[in-house]
Structure formats: structure tokens, C-alpha cells
Simulated scan of single mutants.
Amino acid sequence: MSIAPAPFQIDDTQQLIEAAHAAEAAERTLLEDEIVRRHLGLAHHLAGRYSGRGADRDDLIQVACFALVKAIRGFNHDRGEFVPFATVTILGEIKKYFRDYCWGVRPPRRIQQMQADISSATERCLQADSHQPAVDTIAREIDASADEIREAMAARSCFSPTSLDQPVRDSGRPLGETIAVDGSDYEFIDDWVTVGPLCRDLDDDERELLRLRFVEDKTQQEIAEIVGVSQMQISRRLSKLLARLRSSAAMADAA
């Protein structure tokens, strides 16, 4: 069954959802696509509220759009209006994404849960008196000690730990260069002998990436400017490449 080409009106979203639930696969897809198209602005807006918190904005938008489809398929008229239902669903999926995938350093589960409780308590206090609540106020609100609240709040940086490539304010040197490291040249030689043969299987772009990072000692941002991509893309490429080399090295050791 085909869909009439005339555009739908925004106030018939609920009817469209009910029609999609009852339709065959092809027609259901067309109906869901129309509903998604209408509410993409909502998904982008909600994803934008969480940008800058340690997750890539494009990834957050993708999570929000998947959640929008989930809301469409899970909605029925007994749950009220669609937009409030979709908003709750999208926010829930975004928070779940942060909880499951966005920790640079994963704290204990109780700290993760306490952070959610702190956010809820803070929002309630702001709505009550329009002032940022003190640590002691939040502690009373969620029945926890002030020390526990401080611990959970300090762990928020685990979403996006400070990059070792970040320049130090006074000297401009990357942070990683200012950190003392115990080691010896013999350890470096041993590592180089292990990794050298593994690099023969890499393509030219991968070898160039390693050369710029570990021979030329370029920062990820500097490499991104040379290659013509974003720093995030360089970070991902390096992570995947190094993971592959570690895996190959482990297999070589086991052989």
C-alpha cells in the first residue's frame, strides 16, 4: 500500500504512529520516516544539551535519533502526548550511553549512581530557590555524607580526562612531557624490536600516522592539521591502530 504524497499536518502525529503500528513493513517504514523527520529538531536539541561532556556530538545525535525511533515504536495514546514521551525516552538513552560507553576512567558503580542522584537533587534545589545548592544541602537531599558527594563530583572528570597533549599554560609544552617517567633505553629498544616487524603489514597512511606521532612527536591536533581531518578522527585512528599492534604483539609472544 502506498502513501499519499500530500504532506501530513503536525497535529496528526498520534494518528500516524497508530497507523505505523498497524501497517505492513514497507508502509510502516515510510510512516516512521515521516514522524522521525518531523521530530529531528527535538532529537538534535536534546543531544546538544549534553555536548561538551566527553562524548562526540555526532555520536550523541545518533543515540538521540535511535531513541526517537524507539519512542515511536513504544508509544501508545494511553501515555499522553508524544513529544513529552519522546523527550523522556531520548534523555534516558543519552544518559544510558554516557553511563555505559563514555567513561575515560570508569569509577565504581555506586559513584556512577550517586552522580545521577546528585544531578536530580541539584535540579530540584535549583527549581526550589534558583540557587546552586551547597555540598551539605545535596548531601541532606540524597541522604549521603558530604565526603561522598565530593568524591562523586570529583569523578565527573572521568568522562573526559585531561589530554596528555594539552599544552601546559606557562611553558606551552604538552602535559605528557612534564610528567616524570621511570624507564630505561633498554626497555625502549625491546619495545622497538617487537613493534618494528609488525609495522611491515601496515599501509602507508598508518605508517605515516605512527611516524608523525612517535618519531616527529607531533600532537594529535598538529597531526590533524597536517592530514586534514579532525583531532577526534586522529585519536580514533591511533587508538584502533595501537590496539591492533598490541594484539599482534601478544600473538607473536604467544607463538
Rank of each mutant, 00 (worst) to 15 (best):
A121V: 11
C125E: 04
Q127M: 09
Q127C: 03
D170Q: 07
G172I: 15
A139P: 11
P167E: 07
S119K: 04
R140Q: 13
E123R: 15
Q166I: 09
I149T: 01
A152V: 03
P161T: 00
V181Y: 00
R173Y: 09
R124A: 08
A154Q: 10
S157A: 11
T137W: 05
D143Q: 14
I138L: 06
Q127L: 14
P133L: 09
P174I: 07
A128V: 10
R173H: 14
T122P: 06
I142K: 03
R156Y: 01
D165K: 03
R173P: 00
S171I: 14
A144P: 04
T178K: 08
S160F: 03
T162V: 12
A180S: 00
R169T: 03
R169C: 00
S171C: 13
S160Q: 09
R140N: 12
I118G: 03
D117H: 05
A146H: 01
T137K: 14
R140K: 15
R173F: 03
A121Q: 04
A134F: 12
S120I: 09
A144D: 02
A134T: 15
I142N: 04
P133T: 04
S119L: 10
R169N: 02
C158S: 04
T178V: 13
L175P: 06
A180I: 02
V168I: 10
A128C: 02
P133V: 06
E148Y: 05
R140I: 05
D129A: 10
D165Q: 08
S163I: 00
C125L: 09
F159T: 00
G176P: 04
I149Y: 08
T137C: 07
A180Y: 02
E141T: 14
S157Q: 12
P167Y: 07
D170N: 05
G172W: 15
A134H: 13
C125M: 10
D170H: 09
Q166H: 15
R124T: 01
I138T: 02
R150F: 04
S145V: 01
R140S: 13
D117K: 11
R169S: 01
C125S: 10
P161L: 01
Q132A: 11
A134E: 15
I179M: 15
L126K: 10
A180N: 00
D165R: 07
D143A: 12
T162M: 14
S157H: 06
R140L: 14
C158G: 05
A155D: 02
P167N: 02
T137H: 06
A121R: 08
L175S: 02
I179L: 15
S120E: 15
L126F: 09
A155V: 01
A180F: 01
R124F: 00
H131C: 11
A154M: 13
A155G: 02
I118Y: 10
D117S: 09
I142P: 04
I149G: 03
S163M: 00
L126I: 12
G172L: 13
V168H: 12
I138W: 05
S163F: 03
Q132W: 11
I149M: 07
S145E: 07
R173G: 01
T162I: 13
R140P: 01
A128N: 06
V168P: 01
L126V: 09
E123G: 14
T178F: 08
I142W: 03
R173T: 07
A128Y: 08
G172R: 11
L126D: 02
E151C: 03
S160I: 02
E141R: 15
G176S: 11
T178G: 04
E177M: 06
